[in-house]
């Protein structure tokens, strides 16, 4: 995978759009799901994901081939989502733990959520509920939780994506977990 990527990146640096399309196909699910769980809305996630890839393309010269490409790309996607949410919502909401207006509806979730085969999936209603609770998390906890539990990334990768020490990642994940625990304790699985 990393070898493939380096081969493609050489082409992309020369302006090869087809090579970039290959990269988009490889990573679009990851980028999209980070954005989706960060902003909680399919259309916004779609727009942000496109924006993330375009930004990656235009800044490809800044990518350091010694580092993992996905880390660099997911960092772009995470930062875009955070910037977007900061602009969208009053800043007081972001760090204070206030309920926000939720635009993640059951309808948007049902649109065309095609689950991966091996996943055991909670029902749509529960999904919407979980997303609503993710939406309530302050951004610094939300980003850590999304990368850990949606993208299944290890703490080291998360620390590189968020550009914070591993210890800080842990603290944010701990606090995010505690917040979700209180909110999701009445949710029934299934």
């Amino acid at each position: 995978m990393e070898e493939d990527i380096n081969r493609l990146i050489k082409k992309i640096k020369k302006g090869d759009h087809l090579a970039f399309a290959e990269v988009v196909d490889m990573y679009k699910n990851g980028v999209y799901n980070i954005c989706l769980r960060m902003v909680g809305n399919r259309q916004e996630a779609e727009d942000l994901s496109q924006e993330a890839f375009i930004r990656a393309y235009t800044k490809i010269d800044k990518y350091d081939v010694e580092r993992k490409f996905s880390t660099w790309l997911y960092r772009i996607a995470t930062n875009l989502s955070i910037d977007y949410l900061r602009k969208k919502k009053p800043s007081v909401y972001l760090d204070a733990d206030l309920p926000g207006t939720e635009d993640f509806t059951l309808k948007s979730q049902l649109a065309d959520g095609e689950p991966l085969p091996e996943e055991s999936i909670v029902n749509s209603e529960t999904q919407a509920l979980i997303q609503q609770e993710i939406n309530q998390l302050p951004l610094k906890y939300r980003s850590a939780i999304v990368l850990k539990y949606i993208q299944d990334m290890n703490l080291k990768e998360i620390s590189e994506i968020l550009n914070i020490p591993v210890g800080t990642v842990k603290t944010r994940i701990h606090r995010g977990r505690e917040a979700l625990r209180k909110r999701l304790r009445h949710v029934n699985k299934g």
Partner: peptide, 15 residues
């Protein structure tokens, strides 16, 4: 439970 619920969210594809 809460972390397991997060893990059970689907990973839909974009359009």
């Amino acid at each position: 439970t809460s972390t397991s619920l997060l893990g059970q969210l689907p990973h839909p594809n974009p359009s």
